[in-house]
Write a protein that binds this DNA or RNA. Sequence first.
DNA 1: TCAACTTGCACTTTTGAAACGC
DNA 2: AGCGTTTCAAAAGTGCAAGTTG
Length: 821
Amino acid sequence: MLSVEMYPNLALGHQRVGDCYYREREPPAHMPLYPSSYDMAAGAMPSHPLAPPPAPSKPTCKGQQDSVKMELENGSLWKHFCSVGTEMIITKKGRRMFPQLRVKLSGLNPALRYIMLLDVVAMDTSRYRFQGDTWQVVGGAEARLPDRVFIHPDSPATGAHWQSRSISFHRAKLTNNTLDTQGYIILHSLHRYQPRVHVIEARDVLRWGGGQHSFIFPETQFLTVTAYQNNKITELKIQSNPFAKGFREDGMNSKRQRDVRQKRKLNEPLDIVSCDPCDSTELLSQYSSSSSDLQSLALASLPSLPPLPESVCGYGSNETPFHESPVPEQQQALDLVGQTFIASQMTDITANITADMTKGPQDASGNKVTDGMMDRSVTMSLSTYNGTYPATPLGSSSFAPAPHPQSSSSYRSDLSIPQPSPTSTFNYPSMATTDYPSILSSSPTLPSSTTSPSLQQTSFTYPTLSISTPSSPKPLLSSTSFHSILPSNPQEGLLSPHTPTNTSFPSLPPPSCQPIQQNGVTTHSMLTPPNQALQAVPISNQTPPLLVFNPTAYPYPNLPLSNVIQTTPPSLFNLSSHSTSQSHPVPSLPYSLSSHSAPLAYPFPSLPSSLSSCSSSVQNWTLPNVSSSSVHSAVSIPIPTQIQAPSVGSSFLPSSFTHPQSPLPNPVYQPSSCSAIPSVSVASFQPSASSHIPPFSLTDHSLPPTTCPQNQTTTPSSYPPIAPTEIGSFSQFNSGTPYLPEMVLHHPSLLPRLDPSLSSCVSSSSTPPALYPPFSSYPLRLCQDPRSSFPIPLRHMYRQHQHGHTHAQGSYLDMSGRAVF
DNA sequence: TCAACTTGCACTTTTGAAACGC
DNA sequence: AGCGTTTCAAAAGTGCAAGTTG
């Protein structure tokens, strides 16, 4: 799903540990956890004969990751809004979220580095309208928009850093401008979304940490609007948001004051005195007089708010179910499944990749993993899903209200350990990894019905992905599995005398669990006990090391940095668009996130022919030293030296995905619990030797099967094909530029890749047609607050490559450029 | 015609630079 | 000269309402 996909692709800015901190006065903020309803739905998707992810038998690394917890600090506020039906204004210029997502993390390894990501995924495939004080479904959702991720400015930072303060995503902005170039999160108006927070372990640039955790706080779901529909929400916002103080009863912009001003305005010609700017008596008097009255009114307003339905968010009235899907239960099942599905996908991806690579038959369990690259244990544990997604209960409530966390919503991700939550509704069946569609992608809305034909990302897995023990990242390059996947030796050409021997995170302790795993695909099962109220649902917990780079293997220093970092995500759907790839400067992130890119989007030389055929056309990964040409036939990289970040195909056709175990028992929805829904995060690592593709690539669930040349007959997506975009080119990376060890180190770590969708390509033939018009894959754009603590050099680079997308605060980074039409 | 969206307004908060003092 | 605090103006965030769009 989205989360998964995005992660892999996400390229994080390099940041020094010390640099990471907010300068803002505001307390750090929030982290939303999101359940991926889509993911769940995807999981629920009809039966695609995919083998269930292998049950995690080995809790290999139980460590910190297992105990990673996230709490929604302002959960009470969120609950309050949720009870009414949270609405978020979206504007062309971008609007911040309020309430803010502010979370606290615990259970992280203080010494390890992590990156924090925020993304927003659609919760269903419906469009809503506010009628009769309730939100009602009025039609189908619009085409999926490009997935974008907001990278917390502090990323990457040590676990100690994250745990020492509250983490706020208040800088993230939402926009309805599909052509947005600021890197804001693009959403449709009148749609329902769920924010998600991801924690990805980034041990260093060269090695991805083994853990990836995704959290969802059901109470943070919201409806996007261009103007507030529900007066109660408006009142709440005014009362809660400091910026809206002026609209409070006692404020100068209160209704009464406005009326007075208007009256004055009308009388201006007649009343010159009142017009005198120096004469504030009127206002003051009015203010003073009205303040008391208005205050009382204001106070009354809150009480007037309907009591918070504990179990349900204010969205949908009971009368009007949000989900009109004829088969609500299925919907729920889908949603729930999606969660598990995501988790399973991690394994699937890896399994798929390996399977594809080896082309060896997979057993039903999907255990077959070549080279033992994949750590089943991890995936297995992850696979278990405890579906209790509040929002998922589509059938019952119009707006699936997220269960309200009791006090604080803290969610714990128990990924590594297959612990069936007490409430766990079901264990994720083991799926054949190969077949398993990429659920992880934040694929937009899933068709409610299980009939969703096409799997968007059904089985694609990055070839290079190898599942490693979650905790222990392994040098990808070194990993045998990796090689198996990638024919070309990534290391070749990469190595340079300047190659830093030590990672930027020298202090980092060795992988807690297993020292180094080879290509690791991290899969995260989102298993949250339904009852875990207040805890964010960990979408995924431990994930095998997302990417492990052998420091020695990648001599960034010598390489033009741009090459290393940049990658051009090919448009998922438009294979021909390769040449059009846009380069987006990605600061420190070596890898580009391709949220939507379908598996196809990433052509890996080493990939099995079948896969490669699909992927090759789509994705262009060009590594400076690597003979990219051989690898990515279709890839056209504007900047030869630059690596184009693969666009993560976040958009997946929910419908397209058929979950192998579609018959998943409907997860028990516990309305009362606001427990975050665990989403599975999958990090697939795709090192393409020849291409020097970042070790792992994110898979796009969203990619419709059609994207695969094999299957794809057309590019159905409503959106024009996305031209590949360069994640970022750094001038500093030019060969001439001095070596920046930190940058190098940071790159890889930030880009976990999960691309379940890739597998889809392989199995595309079998994939059912997508119900949804295939969403063209959109390269993910990472948004990062520039002010984050980039090392100075990085900051400089960042600025340089803004491409004019300068945010006022310069806080957003475009990980992947999306072709704007 | 109307729902949805855009734009400008007035207000508040935040932010960063300049001024000031030690 | 360096450092810390204060002040101030610009930028940004906010909801509202009128106007625009489809």
